Amino acid sequence: MSGTLARTGLIVLVALLLAGCTGTQSVLSPGGVEAERVHLLFWIMTIGSGIILALVVVLTGLALFGSQSLRSRFANERFITGLGLFFPVVVLTVLLVYGLFVMRAGAQSQAPEDGQLRVAIEGELWWWRVTYLDGEGNRITSANELHLPVGTPVELALTSDNVIHSFWAPTLAGKLDMIPGRENTLTVTATRAGVTRGQCAEYCGGAHALMAFHVVAHPPQEFEAWLAHAASPAHEPATAQEQHGAELFQQAGCGSCHAVRGTEADGVIGPDLTHVGGRLSLAAATMPNNSQAFSDWIVNNQHIKPENKMPAYEIFTEEQLDDLSIYLDSLE
């Protein structure tokens, strides 16, 4: 009875652990061509290792509690050599070959055709600069989100000018380092629409854990509409509060670090804010995206994400802070 309860408890524990691995940031919920290969290889290795573990447990039990004749057979040199040497060599060799086949090691990836979309992603401290290079040579800069068309290979050019980062979107593909002075490329193909999450997977400093991003996969027509909107300038302030907030943005010098296309703000130190109000999050997936979050970030950003390059602005009155936050939130 106790053995049955122990087995039941173990099964429930494993199920709960696996359930915790699903969701918006998990290799167990693949949404890309390479991630589907990783998912298949994971289950092959997990099931195979489980079978081998069960075999070892059974043989150990028989060696401890079996009959004397059976235990004598286990002590035979050929039995030990077979299971202890040849069996692991054969299994690991087969697994290596199969893994290389599944992951298509050495094969040319399906690269984008001439004129198709290319995305340059730069690892900053501690956020992501994302620039879309369309077929006409236009550069459309955003931050902290990667938008992709479903079913189309997109080449990601990964760079860093500070420290080593690692780009990891588990539902799309495996990790790839971003090394200063070098460009690494990764071709990804989203297989289903939806929103997932990625993370910097290489320790890069104090706020490393707060350097995440969202991946948004669109049906092709929706992606074209999104890209056209992303390329457009910011809309004009529509209310008195938004107008006042836009004036404060310029007067406080925000435009020296941030760009808002269609205005005099053309800074390149911080994220492009042209359509910041339409993003899924603020501060690289650290905060929700609303006017209150903008206010909190402006005043308390060093507390929220220590050592980031933006100083804490405590120069605004409560009314000014509200107007500035409402203006930023309106940039959709």
Results as ranks from 00 to 15, higher is better:
51 I>P: 01
53 L>E: 07
53 L>P: 03
54 A>V: 14
54 A>D: 06
55 L>C: 10
56 V>D: 13
59 L>M: 09
61 G>Q: 02
61 G>E: 02
62 L>G: 05
65 F>V: 15
66 G>T: 07
67 S>L: 05
68 Q>L: 11
68 Q>H: 14
68 Q>M: 15
69 S>E: 14
71 R>E: 04
75 A>K: 04
76 N>T: 02
77 E>Y: 14
79 F>V: 10
83 L>K: 03
84 G>W: 09
84 G>M: 10
84 G>E: 11
86 F>L: 12
87 F>C: 13
88 P>Q: 13
89 V>L: 15
91 V>T: 15
92 L>M: 14
96 L>Q: 09
96 L>A: 11
97 V>A: 06
97 V>E: 03
98 Y>T: 13
100 L>M: 15
103 M>L: 15
104 R>K: 12
105 A>I: 10
105 A>L: 09
106 G>T: 06
109 S>F: 08
111 A>K: 15
111 A>E: 14
114 D>G: 01
116 Q>Y: 03
116 Q>M: 07
117 L>H: 06
119 V>I: 13
122 E>I: 12
124 E>V: 00
129 R>Q: 05
129 R>D: 05
133 L>M: 05
134 D>Y: 04
135 G>W: 11
135 G>V: 12
136 E>I: 06
137 G>N: 00
138 N>M: 12
139 R>D: 10
140 I>D: 00
140 I>Q: 02
141 T>I: 09
142 S>H: 02
145 E>I: 07
146 L>P: 08
147 H>A: 15
148 L>Q: 02
148 L>S: 01
149 P>V: 01
149 P>H: 01
149 P>R: 00
151 G>M: 08
152 T>D: 03
152 T>S: 09
153 P>V: 11
153 P>A: 11
155 E>Q: 15
157 A>N: 14
160 S>N: 14
160 S>R: 08
163 V>M: 04
164 I>W: 09
164 I>T: 14
166 S>C: 13
168 W>P: 01
169 A>D: 00
169 A>R: 00
170 P>M: 00
174 G>R: 02
175 K>H: 09
175 K>Y: 09
176 L>A: 12
179 I>F: 12
179 I>M: 13
180 P>G: 10
180 P>V: 11
180 P>L: 00
181 G>H: 06
181 G>K: 11
182 R>S: 14
182 R>A: 13
185 T>E: 10
186 L>C: 06
186 L>Y: 05
187 T>H: 01
188 V>H: 05
189 T>D: 01
